[in-house]
Write a protein that binds this DNA or RNA. Structure first.
Lengths: 339, 339
DNA sequence: TGTTAGCACTCGAGAGGGTCGACTGCTAAA
DNA sequence: TTTAGCAGTCGACCCTCTCGAGTGCTAACA
């Protein structure tokens, strides 16, 4: 569907104004605030055409126009200009995303919070598209009689948890740590996950520990690979004054498995922008913008923003671009690590 | 203010019905659902008297009655019967509050989630009324070139965090760990917090590490001692269909410092029930039920529930009682620890 | 042929008015 | 002291009317 230059300008104007005011946009609004070179009557004719094409709709006969999902989609695909962040905004982002963290979950959570604070929408950060992390070390540390701290160090950071399930002696722990590290060093997490049949004779003693580590890695893969932040921010938008819709979108943000499905798709283009949700997944009344981040040239996870359909896509895309860069420059995702 | 037996029964009925239906209660409701031994006219007379006393109010002249904050307060102070949980409910609680965790933050978070899930309101768990935790061990573990895991083990569990700030050698770390453990073993966290002047000659080398541990302990005291769970549950109550009120209460649950103030008060009675919020702190449109939990006979923290004024106080109190018990029976809070 | 002024038309928002009925307060009898 | 009876109140709901923002159409204009 080809659009004339003028139609593009007018559609852009309507979308921009919609994003700003959350109200239907009249021909006069477009004329006075965006395109004074065309008279309201001309604009009206174009609006009619754009409505016919499915990009705009009227809440009722004598009201202004509102973009349809298709209208927004056209906007983000072809019309939108991505605002580059000002130096100050970029610096703020950088500062807030302090990269000193060395725990994968913490890094994800921090990235999510940074995005949410910068965009003022809810955000989702996902890790695990191809599970890029490689085991470097497995530590077992006795904390007290019944508690052992298990630390799995990977090249992408630390996964850890303490437990009371392991009651071995310190000597045993040291021994087990050595064997396990030797066994798994250099392997990807999902390789570890599927190595139940690897219990050798020498490892049989440490079956309890082995099982725990499998459990730890599996569990984190299933549950802990999605960080969500800023759900409450949705409260501020007029489209979510309707508590019913609010609940719908908030519920989505609580369903880690559904989020995983959305976030693990790797789009062909840099950004996937699902305007109005995803029919197949039963997601409505919101838009989802996602992009992937890489380590060693391969996508290993994704960043996303969830907000009203009337989202400031230009700003969101720009912020996601920045945070992707910050994340990829993080000591653990960078290709040329100084080790 | 003394109430006749009959007035007590009627006020109880009005409050119970209000909690159930969230609608004004008529004399007929009370008569038909609670007290058929009195005629509606009699009940009307009593309702008038109770209104005069300030326990009830009418949204408008010809409507039923709604309890005032004072009405609820009277109810919780003198009239309410605390439902004992059924065996099954108690078992469910116990099961969901699995005590295998050995990290203070995790335990608090788990307790908060247990309470929120059981009550269907938002919950807050606070630690630090008198800071009961005593240092047992300080571990410094090299994870990679730039990353050291710092673990502070106390008798109440683990406080830990990893950092890239410490770049000492493994030998140094081992040494520092020994010195620090010796120095702080048996001390309370707040004693550690105020020991900046303790840098001895032998410790001077490890100033970086020392500073980090102080930072770690101080920070957790300031920020990480409040666990909140179930904010979203508030969405389900009719009083929060008004997004403005919802925001107000959700904001409260985000302000950790304000929550700390509320949660660190040790009430004289077992339960503090603030009906309608707290004027001094600017908290309105919600009720807060709190109780303290103990370790070694001393209160060290508190559990709380935040919900609409029309809260099922009886159920909440009962659940809090149960969780307090579960928490105090946790391996780390128990007096007779098997160490 | 594309653009624009003029104008009749549409429809939601908001105000005003009327009915209904739930529930009250009062009165007077039991 | 309790209760039946009843008039009175007021919100909820519905209908109607008015107002005006914004449209679509037509005819004139560049």
């Amino acid at each position: 569907m080809k659009l004339s230059e003028r139609k593009k300008k007018i559609l852009s104007a309507v979308v921009d104004e919609s994003i700003k005011t959350a109200e239907p946009v009249s021909s006069n609004d477009v004329h006075s605030k965006y395109l004074s070179e065309f008279s309201p009557a001309t604009i009206r004719n174009e609006l009619m055409a754009l409505e016919e094409m499915g990009f705009l709709s009227q809440p009722h006969t004598s009201s202004g126009r509102v973009p349809t999902a298709e209208g927004y989609q056209m906007y983000v695909n072809e019309l939108m200009d991505i605002k580059k962040l000002s130096k100050k905004e970029a610096d703020n982002l950088k500062e807030s995303f302090d990269t000193k963290l060395f725990n994968l979950d913490d890094v994800l959570q921090k990235a999510a919070k940074t995005i949410s604070d910068a965009t003022n929408y809810a955000s989702v950060v996902y890790y695990g598209i191809t599970g890029g992390a490689v085991v470097e070390n497995i530590l077992l540390i006795k904390l007290s009689q019944n508690n052992t701290l298990v630390v799995v160090v990977t090249d992408l950071g630390v996964i850890k948890e303490e437990t009371s399930a392991i009651t071995s002696t310190e000597d045993d722990l040291r021994q087990a740590s050595k064997i396990l590290t030797k066994m798994f060093k250099g392997k990807k997490l999902e390789e570890v996950e599927h190595s139940e049949n690897l219990i050798t004779k020498e490892l049989a003693r440490y079956k309890q520990i082995f099982d725990y580590i499998l459990h730890l890695i599996t569990e984190r893969d299933e549950h802990n690979s999605v960080a969500v932040s800023g759900k409450d921010k949705l409260l501020n938008y007029p489209e979510y004054q309707d508590v019913y819709k609010l609940k719908h979108t908030m519920n989505l943000l609580d369903q880690k498995d559904k989020l995983s499905m959305v976030m693990s798709e790797v789009p062909e283009v840099e950004f996937s922008i699902k305007v109005g949700g995803d029919e197949n997944l039963g997601i409505t009344d919101c838009s989802i913008v996602t992009t992937t981040y890489k380590s060693r040239g391969k996508p290993i996870g994704s960043l996303g923003v969830v907000g009203p359909v009337r989202m400031d896509y230009g700003k969101v895309v720009s912020i996601l671009k920045n945070v992707t860069k910050l994340l990829e420059d993080n000591q653990f995702f960078k290709e040329d690590k100084d080790e």
